[in-house]
Simulated scan of single mutants.
Amino acid sequence: MRITGLAAYSSDLHYDGTAYAFAGGRSYQHFTSTVVVLTTDEGLTGFGEVCPCGPSYMPAFAGGLPACLEELAPHVIGEDPRHTSRLHRKMDRALNGHAYAKAAIDIACWDLLGKAAGLPVHVLLGGLLTETMPLHRIVPLSDPAAMAASLDAYRKAGFRHFQVKLGHDVDEDIAMMRCLADGWQHGEVWVGDINGAWRRDQVARFSRSLQDLDLILEQPCASYEECLSFRQRAHHPIKLDECLTSVADVQRALKDDAMDAMALKVSKFGGLTPSRLIRDLCVAAGIPMTIEDAWGSGIATAAYAHLAASTPTPYLLNTTDLHRYNTTQLAHGAPEVTCGTMRLSNRPGLGAEPDFSLLSVPLVTAGSLN
């Protein structure tokens, strides 16, 4: 099998809420998603999707994706998509960095691998180990009353894992968490996500003031070094996210004992090929993970859900249903969500395909698309 063509499309995903807001004054109403389509000489078509969470969240810019894909396309066409590691190494030689662009192609290759084998991708990633995946629900940064109302609504919808965005004044966030914690129920998992917005002294004061709360603190400071320094005196488990951007970063964090958990965002690391390696390193080290992505619709959700489903249950902290955060769905066949959990189908490949009526005209075309 050989890749004969590559095309890329885009569409805006509008947030199903007032605003998706988090620390640092960042707030968005919509995100631009890019869908990559790979065609092959055997008539199979593979789909990938990448959707950065705005231009200021991580090193990923939706406006730059078409240029990156134009650069990568000549190096991808003619390759066998089933040889995912070989193809990923070739992309790395062709373009330094820009993991998010490579992720869109890599995900489409895994979709093709599954379709060629007649198997769902999770089987190829290790097998179905977590059939029913727990979901966390994000509580965007807002005034305390609005956040309390959102949390209550999500709890009533069946969610038991919550990621509460922090980023007010530290004293305000301490008071808000005290207020929210009045409704805490047995078995719930709470993560306070600071998105790297605080200094070490600020997060130390926050953690010390709330040390009686069963709470995980996510990405408390901007840099890895600051987070590592704080971890040595933290009163809560530490989860790392934005400061880890490569396999080498994760290896360093494991060696330094820098984290109790991590957020594994598939597009940030370049797709399922490197993310599978990171997943297995964390499992071997006993580190639980939230397996997810920055944003996306049904194809992006399906990609990380297959990785999550093939993760041993003790090491899957949770995942998320990003496709249900949007007012529109760009794909058919996204994973099914019920009462705060998610399940995959047994369809070959990712099991999700784009709704081309909702996508732009092709932004990139290369090779033969027939």
Rank of each mutant, 00 (worst) to 15 (best):
L317F: 04
C53W: 10
T301D: 05
L180C: 09
L72C: 10
P348L: 02
T273W: 05
T319L: 02
L69T: 11
R205W: 02
L87D: 07
W295F: 14
T84Y: 05
H323Y: 11
P144C: 11
A294H: 13
E226F: 03
P354N: 04
A23R: 12
V139T: 15
M259I: 00
V203K: 01
V247Y: 13
V266A: 05
S11G: 11
F47S: 06
M289C: 13
L213K: 04
L307N: 10
N318R: 10
A67H: 12
I194P: 03
I107P: 15
P52C: 04
S150F: 08
D212G: 00
T338C: 11
H75M: 04
R93D: 12
L13F: 01
G351A: 05
A60F: 13
S27E: 09
E218G: 06
D92P: 09
R26F: 14
T18V: 11
S150G: 12
A108S: 12
G286S: 01
W110P: 13
R200Y: 00
H30P: 01
G158I: 02
Y154E: 07
A334C: 02
S207D: 00
G349W: 09
H332R: 08
L228G: 03
A103M: 11
A303W: 08
Y100V: 08
G187D: 02
E71A: 15
Y9N: 07
A23G: 13
G183F: 03
P348S: 03
T45D: 07
A334W: 00
M133Q: 08
M289Q: 15
A308T: 09
W110F: 15
V337H: 01
P74T: 08
L151R: 09
A145Y: 12
Q202F: 01
P335Y: 02
G298H: 04
N96Q: 14
S27A: 09
A258Y: 03
L281E: 08
A248H: 13
A258P: 05
M147E: 15
D249S: 05
R276Y: 12
T327Q: 06
G367A: 08
H168P: 05
D182Q: 12
Y9V: 10
S11Q: 14
R155L: 00
Y224T: 11
V50E: 07
T245L: 15
E353S: 10
S33N: 03
H30M: 08
I287Y: 02
I291R: 12
L72H: 11
I138H: 10
G367T: 09
P314C: 00
F206A: 01
Q29P: 00
D80I: 04
L240I: 06
D169G: 08
E71S: 15
L359P: 03
D92E: 15
A352S: 15
C109Y: 03
P66D: 02
G296R: 07
A73V: 12
A366E: 12
G183Q: 13
A284Q: 14
L240R: 03
A366C: 13
F206W: 01
R199V: 02
C243P: 11
A148V: 09
E172R: 06
A294C: 14
N96H: 15
P134Y: 04
H136S: 14
Y154D: 09
T338S: 11
M1N: 05
L38G: 11
L317H: 13
I216H: 00
S11C: 12
